[in-house]
């Protein structure tokens, strides 16, 4: 547990030192969503209909911005070697890194989503569903994206491969997340898609740290 906390604290400290890197995802998120608003007619009802997809895709792309560096910086400076040789299982290390990534990237997007959604014309009754969906979905993006980042960390052009591999894997979360908001907008029960999102999150939390740790060990071969 102390090792996990140490990694988490280090991630926060590094985020404070390299602020630009970590401010980029929320900035990108706000800019993309705002541009959609500015690009359509004022009070266009279609915008509210498309808002869940706009917010989800913007959140997905924003999270991808910092994923490539998640393990690469540690590989380049030799930290990953030491983490691999430590007494703490590498899966625990990977989990701490992925949770740190979500806290720094996904969580701010969840918090920003509500005012941006209102700006796009999403009804206030649907906003809690959107926020709940993103709260369940953004950790999935960090976990699945982190797994792909671990898989490609040793590749010279892994950054190019990363979105191509992450986007198809994250599609189910995107479908359930946007589906939940659409259901709420139509006055239907949004429980089912949110439960599916929760299931994806639990599955990812359980499996991905182990798979990611195996991928990280392969980075040295």
């Amino acid at each position: 547990m102390s090792a996990m906390l140490a990694i988490f604290r280090r991630e926060l400290l590094l985020a404070m030192r390299a602020r630009t890197e970590w401010l980029m995802p929320p900035f990108f998120f706000i800019v993309v969503v705002t541009l959609f608003g500015l690009g359509t007619e004022p009070n266009d009802p279609k915008l509210a209909a498309f808002a869940p997809a706009i917010l989800w895709v913007a959140a997905l792309l924003s999270t991808l911005l910092t994923l490539e560096r998640l393990f690469r910086a540690d590989l380049e400076d030799g930290t990953l070697e030491q983490l691999c040789l430590g007494a703490t299982p590498l899966a625990v290390v990977a989990l701490a890194k992925l949770l740190g990534h979500w806290a720094l990237t996904g969580l701010p997007l969840v918090l920003l989503a509500a005012p941006l959604a209102v700006g796009l014309g999403v009804t206030s009754a649907s906003v809690p569903t959107l926020v709940a969906g993103l709260a369940l979905g953004t950790p999935c993006i960090s976990l699945i994206g982190g797994f792909v980042a671990a898989l490609t960390v040793g590749l010279p052009r892994g950054g190019l491969l990363l979105p191509a591999l992450v986007l198809p894997l994250i599609t189910p979360a995107l479908i359930f997340g946007t589906g939940a908001v659409r259901a709420a907008q139509q006055g239907l029960d949004a429980g089912a898609p949110l439960y599916f999102l929760a299931a994806i999150l639990v599955l990812s939390l359980t499996l991905i740290p182990w798979i990611a740790s195996a991928a990280l060990r392969n980075a040295f071969d």
Partner: peptide
């Protein structure tokens, strides 16, 4: 045996 490893790379984060 518990080991210490010092590789080519120093395992030091440049920002810290």
């Amino acid at each position: 045996l518990p080991l210490h490893w010092v590789g080519h790379r120093n395992a030091l984060n440049p920002h810290l």
